[in-house]
Design a protein around this nucleic acid. Structure first.
Lengths: 221, 221
DNA sequence: CCGGATCCGGGTTGATACTG
DNA sequence: CAGTATCAACCCGGATCCGG
């Protein structure tokens, strides 16, 4: 698209990332560093391949992403965010948070991909017993599983399989997100179709409910 | 533009404010609540009137702005942000901050409007002697003057004339911004063409330099 | 002047087909 | 898998016009 030609930080930012699809491409790369072209295409339902190709070239030229030829056994090129691109995360998170209330009006025709819950999880998930031993929980809906790993007060949310999960949560991504962000109680989630195997307390560590010890220690009573 | 049709907060936000010009319209309204159509047009060099008109309708329909018919003596309609629209400020500020480094590569053909420095001032300006008595400083370049008012640790930056400014700073908006954000020393700014009348210490309160008392009290030595 | 509405040429997007 | 090619539909920018 054309530049706004305004000497203003916002206008300059939009010159680079204001085009259609661009911030969604950044979202995909924030969720999963090292995407193949096809991964991006699958994560962006509706995008045309020529447009994706053109955007990737523009983003590379402006220093937001970097393409990296991988030798076998991958034998393809992976797209990464540069440091500069990763610096967009706070702005992307804030815009996403602003749009979150609109999700309630989401239409049935809207696409839903499970990995889109990674960004809200990274922003809002809390470890309510940070001094407890490290633990990993795996989330499974469609597509690649998501791993939450908590250790020493730090929390990471990634897109891949856990080596040794203390619990596995299966269900629709929407229900899992609602559970982990405390909008649904654990029992309600379970009767709504969420299946949890393994240590229930590992889940309660992030989603304390009224019956959980973390709820008592994490709440100021 | 068309909806992305993705159940994702970021995508929903971009459905509303991702269209061309939209975030710049929001910027104008953040700087100056209560804009006339013509004020917006002047603040957005390059926009076509039909596009501005269409965007305003869409933004009103989506609850981001509100139009208000004013009786005489104004006798026109003013556009305001709603609370929901004002909630975009953090995201807009973050995007603008991300784009700020690109300003150094700004072309000569880029438009420059003095009031665009209001957002960076609001974000970065600091009162280095918050316990001192209230004070107002007026900034003058082209267009409407800008007023900084500091009182009891709070800082406000507005677009209009001060009742009783302790100091008046005249110069190009870029130089003034550079001075107030501490990138230029006061003396260097003055020899660069910035004229200050009134109490120099009122300016030093925001832009302490090596010779200023605020520099010593505000710095951890 | 203010606040648009209308029209038009050119550029961008979206959908699909095709290729190495 | 990773794009390129093609083409219709749509959108944008610029100019013009018009009622208060």
């Amino acid at each position: 698209m054309k530049s706004y030609k305004q000497r203003c930080g916002l206008a300059k930012a939009l010159d680079l990332v204001g085009d259609r699809w661009v911030l969604l491409i950044v979202r995909e790369l924030l969720i999963r560093q090292g995407c193949r072209f096809t991964d991006l295409k699958n994560g962006l339902p509706g995008i045309a391949t020529n447009l994706l190709s053109a955007r990737l070239k523009e983003l590379e030229a402006s220093g937001v992403i970097r393409r990296q030829e991988e030798p076998p056994p991958i034998a393809t090129t992976l797209f990464h965010l540069t440091d500069r691109g990763r610096a967009l995360e706070p702005a992307v998170q804030l815009l996403g948070a602003w749009g979150a209330p609109l999700l309630s009006k989401s239409r049935k025709e809207d696409a839903v991909l499970a990995h889109w819950i990674v960004l809200p999880l990274r922003q809002h998930l809390r470890d309510h017993t940070p001094n407890a031993p490290p633990v990993a929980v795996e989330l499974r809906s469609e597509g690649q599983p998501i791993v939450i790993s908590a250790a020493a007060g730090t929390l990471e949310v990634h897109l891949n399989s856990a080596q040794n999960p203390r619990a596995i949560v299966k269900g629709s991504s929407i229900q899992i997100l609602s559970l982990l962000l405390g909008k649904t109680e654990l029992k309600a989630a379970q009767s709504g179709g969420v299946q949890i195997t393994g240590d229930l307390n590992a889940v309660r560590r992030f989603a304390p409910d009224s019956a959980s010890p973390a709820a008592r220690s994490g709440r100021e009573t």
